[in-house]
Write a protein that binds this DNA or RNA. Sequence first.
DNA 1: ACACAAGCTGCAACCGATTGCAATGGTAGG
DNA 2: CCTACCATTGCAATCGGTTGCAGCTTGTGT
Lengths: 335, 335
Amino acid sequence: MAATIRDVARLAGVSPSTVSRALSLPAMVNAATRARVAAAVEQLGYEPNRAARGLITGRTGTIGLVVPDLANPFFASLTKGVQARARHHDVAVFVADTDEDPAAEAGLVRALSKQVDGVVLCSPRAGDEELAAIAQDTTVVLVNRSAAGIPGIAYDNEDGMRQAVAHLVALGHRRIAWVGGPATSWSTQHRGLGLRNAVESLRAELAPVGNFAPTYEGGMAAADQVVATGATAVVAYNDLVAIGLLARLHSRGISVPGDLSVVGVDDIAMSRMARPALTTVRLPKQEAGRIAVELLLAMLDDPDGPGAAARHRQLHGELHGELIVRDSTGPAPQK
Amino acid sequence: MAATIRDVARLAGVSPSTVSRALSLPAMVNAATRARVAAAVEQLGYEPNRAARGLITGRTGTIGLVVPDLANPFFASLTKGVQARARHHDVAVFVADTDEDPAAEAGLVRALSKQVDGVVLCSPRAGDEELAAIAQDTTVVLVNRSAAGIPGIAYDNEDGMRQAVAHLVALGHRRIAWVGGPATSWSTQHRGLGLRNAVESLRAELAPVGNFAPTYEGGMAAADQVVATGATAVVAYNDLVAIGLLARLHSRGISVPGDLSVVGVDDIAMSRMARPALTTVRLPKQEAGRIAVELLLAMLDDPDGPGAAARHRQLHGELHGELIVRDSTGPAPQK
DNA sequence: ACACAAGCTGCAACCGATTGCAATGGTAGG
DNA sequence: CCTACCATTGCAATCGGTTGCAGCTTGTGT
């Protein structure tokens, strides 16, 4: 069996309390004693049991992360960001994948909440009330959306869409199609809004083609409707959808960007491997994960502290996308 | 704060012991009492704290999963499989990403081992002795490789490679290039071995071009060397590498499969989106994750039990790949 | 030589659960 | 009516840590 604090204490010839202090409050224990404890720890390969500590201190050194789908590269990157930052703070991460099932979320968070200090929640679909209920009895940071009263990190979707539209308009496009993601998704709503504002101020025209699954298949399914709109450019909900569009357009013999320019959102690794390489609005995914962890830990250290509100405002909506121009966008075809 | 067993007990007018039993040994408590407890649990939204239970029972209901890189779709799928199966057993999963750093593994597993009942370890690079040391004091299941004495799930790489070579030979290819992954990787070694056996028995010829990073970039880097071998077909370490090859070959104007046929391994989602769609050996990734969890839980229930050895043998090396033929392979060019 | 403070260390209580054992009350058999 | 037994429940110890408090050494000032 693994060594306990008592084993270390015995070997070092001190009491368990001293071992505990030698590890967490080194200043409080004599240098010689500390050295003996350190040697014993080393010899036994002792690691304190975080769960036990958590019972006393209320801090387990563990946070939870809930994402809709780990196989989606966007969330995989986010997860990496969370992991990296958490490790940096010596915090462990529970990852739960809801399988795109918003109903499962609340239950998962509840189950998690007992074993973690706080949760980073990536819940594009859940309703605001649901989120509020969850945040009631668990420290939560929201990623990739915002909801009243709950601290979180969101992208500035409006700004990202403005960049995309400006790029397309500069290339001569006037009629721009929009392939939305799931209707209930926060990002879909905000990107749609951003697009409407952008086309309006830039004297272009938006042709929404409805809502599709945020996947390659969703893009394949949307392609023909996009073509039917007569638009010369299309903005897709995300890169996966954009790549689905590329595939279907290719098989229909429609040239990208010759006949139709395509823009995605996210900048997943796959996007630069697509043919043609995808123009997209890069969202700093790992960055979002990192910041979410910082925010969560700050909240835990200082709940409702004086800095809390400021921190919230400072971090909230701070993340901007960056347009990455590749080969899937070009001048509008001459009519 | 979240409710504890004492809160429930107070509300139901019973002792904590009774609550505990009502939840885990219902037959032992009176139906009326059980109902009162259930009502209290419901009202308070009580969930037992697994960590505390773990201190007593030695079973926390939590397992760990260590993977080299979550952003790699192969491991993302594996993770999903693990998650799904774990949830089915009402077990929580700690996920740790080592960032392709084999040195970090041992430390991570050690840190994890205190908080989990067992670990699913995906460690393509670590040495056998290292693994043995880890397995010494933690219940471990290995995925995607095998090592003496440690139970695990591995793919039958030899068989997969045989299928790939048979396919290529049937198409008339005689000289087949092989782009290996990291030299120390267990999969690289076994796939290389499988290829050598296969070409020998099928009267073809193998042209290994060395070891590359298991990434898109690795494939790009390998492409020119592949061309230089004069082979008419190439088997890549994995799909990411194969897709990198496709990109570089395309930009050099080499036609796939006209001039060169390309085969990958894994069948990640990206592969059918590649152009041309990639022929590959599909590995059942989620399945591997699921089986790993089953095996781990079985080991925990019955350590060194009579069934252990049999279970090990039965599950070990059980997983076979399946050749998925798409558009990146075709008849060998007529000389 | 004495009082006092400071520096270390150990004792014991506690966190949230589980479980062996003992106590309770009720019931059935003699 | 008494006794034995059973079903049900509570008590108290336990898991691996943490921490307030008290006690023991020292060293210092006088």
